[in-house]
């Protein structure tokens, strides 16, 4: 089986604190994989290691067969591996359309392309995606003036604009109005099914992740605790213990 993302024995510690220890995760192409674990279990650290914010201490991370551990953030992003942030990050001083326009793929961008005018197709695509996440009416507002939930949707749309092969989502439904959560799940599934984007999702909302993911990894105390299909994870005693703090 070919895996789009292959993590082998990744370890990372800060000072004396071990954040990730010998973690191995496989993400097959075209799937939606979940990553759960109690607060402080090392999920976000793992994300940061994957996208190059800090190098792993040991182990390997491969994306489409390329080793990522020595690459920098923008290089990894240009390979088609993107992430969204837990504390949503958008360009607050620009309006939504501008946020989208600057999020086009930059792979192999030439010096001349930096000075090129933005083509109408880009704008069209931007508006389509804004429509898709439900921000079309607000597209001329400054992104910084949107609500947190709307910013989250915008960040998701920006990621889609970049046409990544794979997207790492850090808590896509945190802080979002519960009535909108189903909409988000649908959109994630849509992006996966129709745009062919492989997803790796960190999520605390069990209903969401059970609904969304085909396979789930659970971290606790920086180690891989369990993995399996959602229903198995749901009934795994170790996972339940970890969440309830029975350690």
């Amino acid at each position: 089986m070919s895996h789009l993302l292959e993590i082998r024995d990744a370890s990372k510690s800060f000072g004396g604190v071990i954040a990730n220890e010998n973690i191995s995760i496989d993400v097959p192409e075209g799937k939606i994989i979940g990553l759960i674990g109690p607060n402080g279990s090392g999920k976000t650290t793992l994300f940061n290691s994957i996208v190059g914010y800090h190098p792993v201490d040991s182990g390997s991370i491969k994306f489409s067969g390329h080793e990522l551990t020595r690459l920098r953030v923008p290089q990894i992003a240009r390979m088609g591996l993107l992430r969204t942030f837990q504390q949503t990050r958008i360009y607050g001083g620009m309006n939504c359309v501008e946020n989208m326009r600057i999020s086009t793929p930059t792979h192999g961008e030439s010096l001349r392309a930096m000075f090129r005018a933005i083509s109408p197709e880009v704008t069209e695509q931007a508006e389509e995606l804004l429509e898709f996440v439900g921000l079309y009416e607000k597209r001329w507002l400054l992104a910084g003036d949107l609500s947190f939930g709307q910013q989250k949707l915008l960040e998701f749309a920006m990621a889609l604009m970049n046409r990544p092969k794979m997207l790492l989502l850090d808590e896509p439904t945190a802080g979002i109005n519960p009535t909108l959560i189903n909409g988000i799940i649908d959109r994630l599934k849509h992006a996966n099914a129709n745009l062919g984007i492989t997803l790796l999702v960190i999520e605390h909302n069990m209903r969401v992740i059970m609904n969304l993911a085909e396979h789930i990894y659970c971290l606790a105390h920086g180690q891989l605790l369990a993995e399996g299909a959602p229903e198995n994870i749901q009934h795994d005693q170790r996972v339940i213990d970890a969440y309830l703090g029975a350690h």
């Binding site: 953030v73 923008p74 992003a77 942030f85 600057i102 930059t106 930096m114 005018a117 933005i118 970049n162």
Partner: peptide, 23 residues
């Protein structure tokens, strides 16, 4: 055009711009 958007993006959040693959 693109140049202007890119430097505005750097102003608003340079880490984000990097994580979107901007040069």
């Amino acid at each position: 055009e693109r140049f202007g958007l890119a430097i505005n993006a750097i102003r608003d959040d340079e880490d984000k711009a990097e994580s979107m693959g901007l040069y």
